[in-house]
Design a protein around this nucleic acid. Structure first.
Length: 674
DNA sequence: AGGCCTCGAGTTCA
DNA sequence: CTCGAGGCCT
């Protein structure tokens, strides 16, 4: 049944009206009409949409109430990676930042730079994608490249425009900002949770995070989340300054933090930071610092990037919440490599959202520097919001009964001797058969970045090893459902899950296989490099120290460690056993053979890249069949000169090697405008 | 030789 | 996130 034109027009008008009043009410906090009037408009729209379901458009305000629960979140790739910022903890570091900006942007040191300072809201970084002004998707930060699709949930946030009110930019743009929960709302929700006998949230950030990651967006709708926009990104930068982007966002109807300020000169910036450090409690939301950005986009571009963070922005962090507790014991925990790590066991204390009881002391040197003793009263805080850290000892609380910790001379797990090798800080148990190492190796094999075997976590591994079912990683593949099911805590279903997860891991890419072996100095990255270089397990097993040191990024230490590993009868036996029980590492399909823009070519990068990290660029070269090297020689085919190229550029010119700009490189790789 | 950047390995709690 | 250490550039 076609919708009569008159009705369609009315619905459209209603949507626009409601969206406008929404904005007046929620963003500007100055409604033009009364609540009953608003409700009348809303009910009329619901009525029309009920009668003619085809009227429901994605930007209809009725879509904000939440939809049926999802099975799981999809994933969304960000147009531009969401990167992290360098931190500053005091004014001196802000001045240092200012100095670096000028150095790298080729400005005289007496130049006064204009910055934009914005409160750093303690919430969840979120990326909204708009297509021709219409909200298309919303994603969490995730790993910076790919986030979770939380569109349904974000639509319930009333201050986020489903369609730009005015000045919509054409094409695809990303609006980034922080989803947060006001303190008052947090308290309201916790009271509600308490009344329902449900667990309460530790802090507003956790409450916001929990609400955004609700599979049932109807629940999210009931938690009144909020949003501040702070970044606008499009294929080509739409404005010459950051401040103008913020103004555009405001015009479009986004809430932009009212305390954001354009500031001239680093001294004024420092004053702003210190001012808000004092006044943060005046706000109805938590802030953990101030973000400072160079205002002028051209200056930003000249200042460039260091690996994954921009040189033109910095996060000034307010001092973290601290707590005082007592160290009752210091334990040495043994990791999979045999390293003994001292861990302080403390009286439980509540800091920044959770109760903390343990904190790593890293190693002997660190422990000495901080001079932590058993019985000491210490100040602790969360490093980066999660990991507890001992900040300092309070020596005035000492009674004289405190005991210094001495590293055990025998491994606490297997009783074999512990040594601290010359020139290293780590204490090690050298016994490869030490249960801690055996368990650790199996756990590592199953871990997410190695063979990714679900359900093979710490608990399960402990049990399997204790029961004698598994002595090494190869034994994992001889497990049967019947044998697992007979274990305690394992019923039909969980046994099934485990066995299936193991079966799914039988054909890993060579790189994952090598990483999973847990060879010393071979982490994810080096494993990747080795797999690409050797291509098959057979070739890898024949590698000599000399072959290995030819591999870029592999120096003498890694070469020796790997050579030792592949020649050791113990590890050869293990690998043979793995192959025998049916693990088939997949040879690397040579990109060179497949052809590609850089087939058989060697590419070297110099200077900073603006649209991707060095690593990503190197991966791109590899995907296209080429090899990324780090030094220029006559074997080099291309040198890609980014921002501020170094001596490699000069060398390329001298040797007559072709030099590409970043844009030319991207074009060649088939990713123009990436 | 010294400095910078990246990588590896260990860690916490819910 | 932390520290330590390996590799490469200057």
């Amino acid at each position: 049944m076609a919708v009569p034109k008159k009705i369609a027009d009315e619905a459209k008008k209603l949507r626009e009206k409601i969206n406008y009043h929404n904005y007046r009410y929620y963003v500007l906090d100055s409604p033009e009409i009364s609540d009953p009037e608003y409700d009348r408009l809303f009910r009329r729209l619901v009525e029309l949409e009920g009668k003619y379901p085809e009227l429901v458009s994605p930007d209809s305000p009725t879509q904000r109430v939440g939809a049926a629960p999802l099975e799981e979140f999809g994933s969304v790739r960000h147009m531009f990676p969401m990167l992290s910022l360098n931190n500053a903890f005091e004014a001196a570091e802000l001045r240092e930042f200012d100095r670096r900006v000028k150095t790298f942007a080729d400005l005289p040191q007496d130049e006064v730079v204009t910055y934009v300072a914005e409160l750093k809201i303690d919430g969840l970084a979120t990326c909204l994608r708009y297509e021709d002004g219409l909200l298309a998707s919303a994603a969490t930060r995730g790993d910076g490249m790919v986030g979770e699709d939380v569109t349904q949930n974000v639509k319930t946030i009333k201050t986020i425009p489903l369609r730009w009110l005015r000045g919509a930019l054409p094409g695809t743009v990303e609006v980034r900002g922080e989803v947060y929960m006001q303190r008052s709302e947090f308290e309201r929700i916790n009271k509600e949770q308490e009344a329902k006998g449900e667990p309460i949230f530790a802090n507003p950030r956790n409450a916001a995070a929990g609400s955004v990651r609700q599979l049932d967006s109807r629940i999210t709708a009931k938690r009144h989340l909020n949003f501040f926009a702070y970044e606008l990104r499009a294929a080509s930068p739409p404005f010459p300054s950051h401040w103008e982007s913020l103004e555009c966002l405001k015009r479009a109807g986004f809430p932009v933090n009212p305390h954001s300020k354009k500031i001239t000169g680093v001294e004024q910036v420092a004053a702003y930071c210190l001012d808000w450090q004092e006044r943060q409690s005046e706000l109805d939301y938590n802030v953990d610092g101030v973000v400072v950005k160079v205002n002028d986009v051209a200056t930003q571009d000249r200042a460039g990037w260091v690996s994954r963070s921009p040189r033109w922005a910095v996060a000034y962090k307010f001092p973290a919440e601290e707590a005082v507790t007592v160290v009752r014991e210091i334990q040495a925990s043994v990791g999979r490599t045999g390293v003994l790590t001292p861990v302080a066991i403390m009286d439980p204390v509540f800091v920044d959202g959770s109760t903390v009881q343990r904190a790593t002391l890293h190693n002997e040197d660190e422990l000495r520097r901080k001079d932590v003793r058993i019985g000491d009263t210490v100040v602790i805080r969360k490093a980066g919001d999660v990991i507890p850290e001992v900040v300092r000892v309070l020596p005035e609380k000492r009674t004289g009964k405190e005991k210094k910790f001495t590293f055990p001379s025998k491994c606490p797990i297997c009783g074999e001797p512990v040594v601290r090798p010359e020139g290293e800080v780590a204490h090690r148990c050298l016994n490869p058969a030490c249960p801690a190492q055996v368990r650790g190796n199996i756990e590592h094999w199953g871990s997410r970045n190695a063979l990714n075997i679900d359900h093979l976590g710490e608990q399960t591994v402990n049990l399997l090893v204790a029961e004698g079912l598994v002595k090494d990683v190869a034994d994992v593949y001889t497990l049967t459902k019947e044998r697992v099911r007979d274990l305690e805590r394992f019923a039909e279903k969980s046994a099934d899950n485990l066995i299936r997860a193991i079966e799914n891991s039988r054909r890993p890419p060579l790189a994952k296989f090598i990483f999973g072996l847990g060879i010393r100095h071979v982490g994810e990255h080096v494993a990747d490099v080795l797999a690409d270089h050797f291509g098959t397990v057979e070739k890898f097993l024949q590698a000599s120290a000399e072959d290995l040191s030819q591999v870029p990024e592999v120096g003498p230490v890694i070469a020796e460690s790997v050579a030792e590993y592949v020649r050791s009868p113990r590890s050869r036996a293990l690998i043979e056993k793995l192959l025998r029980v049916g693990v088939e590492p997949q040879p690397v399909r040579s990109a060179a053979a497949k052809g590609g823009a850089f087939a058989g070519k060697t590419v070297v990068f110099t200077g900073g890249l603006s649209t991707m990290t060095r690593q990503e660029a190197e991966r791109l070269v590899k995907e296209q069949g080429g090899r990324a090297s780090s030094s220029v020689s006559k074997e080099t085919d291309y040198v890609v000169a980014g921002d501020k190229p170094g001596s490699k550029y000069d060398k390329a010119v001298k040797l007559g090697v072709s030099v590409l700009s970043e844009q030319e490189f991207l074009k060649k790789a088939g990713r123009p405008g990436h």
